[in-house]
């Protein structure tokens, strides 16, 4: 057994060349490709992680925005509700005030209308009563009625203050006696005498007829009027009724 040194040398060189060639065309390129794929995968994973983080951040932002929307919505609703409550309260107050004013105005108007109506009806009733009384009293004209009114006239004269009665007596003025019907001359003299006695002196008395008196005997002088007739009585009654209603 011998060693062929040429072969040994060739084989050593061959293997060295093979190591270099495979290192150049196989080991390093394939390992670099593996490393590149690993780096690419890492980069893709990092990018995916970054995208995921970005998406998570975006989701957080959306959630915060949504929360902000909800808070803003709550605030807007609260403000709107508060404003609505204020407007509602103001409207209610205004309506209440307006209603109160309308009610007061309506009450006043109703009261005025009622008073006017009552006044009108009172006046109508009074006039109606007076008309009825006039129609009824117009049928009572007679001696008894005239005597009664003569007595009432004399009583009125007696009820006058003394100073007034004496002033009329002292004036000597002609008195005018008005009756609803024409008096007979005897009755006129009798009435004149009784009137003179009532004043304490004879005073000239003229007689006049006024059917509007309905019934009665009135005495008019320069400074004296004694309204002693149903017309005067009815007028006073009507004035009293009207005055009572107005008061």
């Amino acid at each position: 057994m011998t060693i062929d040194w040429w072969t040994l040398g060739f084989q050593a060189v061959n293997v060295l060349i093979l190591i270099w060639l495979l290192g150049r065309f196989f080991w390093r390129p394939v390992a670099a490709m593996i490393a590149q794929r690993h780096a690419t995968a890492q980069a893709i994973l990092a990018e995916a992680e970054a995208k995921r983080a970005e998406a998570a951040a975006a989701l957080d932002g959306i959630a915060r925005t949504r929360a902000g929307f909800a808070e803003e919505r709550e605030a807007i609703l609260a403000a709107a509700q508060e404003t609505a409550e204020q407007v509602r309260a103001a409207r209610l107050q205004e309506a209440a005030e307006e209603a109160a004013a309308l009610e007061a105005t309506a009450k006043a108007s109703i009261a005025r209308d009622k008073a006017a109506t009552e006044k009108i009806w009172t006046e109508r009733a009074s006039h109606l009563a007076v008309d009825i009384a006039q129609r009824l009293a117009s049928r009572l004209d007679g001696a008894a009625v005239r005597t009664a009114f003569l007595e009432w006239l004399l009583k009125e004269i007696h009820d006058l203050p003394d100073a007034a009665r004496q002033a009329v007596a002292a004036s000597g003025a002609t008195l005018e006696a008005i009756s609803a019907t024409l008096l007979e001359p005897e009755e006129q003299q009798h009435y004149a005498r009784l009137v003179g006695q009532a004043f304490g002196t004879n005073l000239p008395v003229t007689f006049k007829v006024d059917p509007d008196l309905i019934a009665g005997l009135e005495l008019h002088g320069p400074h004296l009027v004694i309204a002693n007739s149903w017309r005067a009585d009815l007028s006073r009654i009507l004035a009293d009724i009207t005055h009572d209603d107005q008061s």
């Binding site: 062929d4 040429w6 072969t7 060739f10 060349i17 093979l18 060639l21 495979l22 065309f25 196989f26």
Partner: peptide, 26 residues
């Protein structure tokens, strides 16, 4: 002066196959 033995030739053939395969892979 260098004798080329059969093992060297076989080695060259193997090297050729390996290098061609490596280049193809590369």
């Amino acid at each position: 002066p260098a004798p080329i033995s059969e093992s060297v030739v076989t080695t060259w053939a193997i090297m050729l196959v390996l290098v061609i395969g490596s280049v193809a892979v590369f």
